[in-house]
Amino acid sequence: MLPGLVNWETFVQGMIGGIVAVVVGLVLAALTTVGVVSTVSSAPSQPEQSVMDYGTNQQAAE
């Protein structure tokens, strides 16, 4: 490599890495947003339990 010139190999690797990181970041950000929204909007709705129950092992109805 000539001094002062760009190392293209490093540059391309950085570009690819950066794109991968940004894509993963965007996917996770989208997952988070959708996850939060779906979590908040689908509060668990177990069948009503008696006041004396320890809990229920019946799954929440979505």
């Binding site: 809990g55 929440a60 979505e62």
Partner: peptide
């Protein structure tokens, strides 16, 4: 856990699978 009442809602959606 056996008690569905204490399972976070996010675990019961597709987010749990992801």
């Amino acid at each position: 856990i056996w008690n569905a009442e204490v399972v976070p809602a996010s675990r019961t959606t597709w987010v749990g699978v992801v």
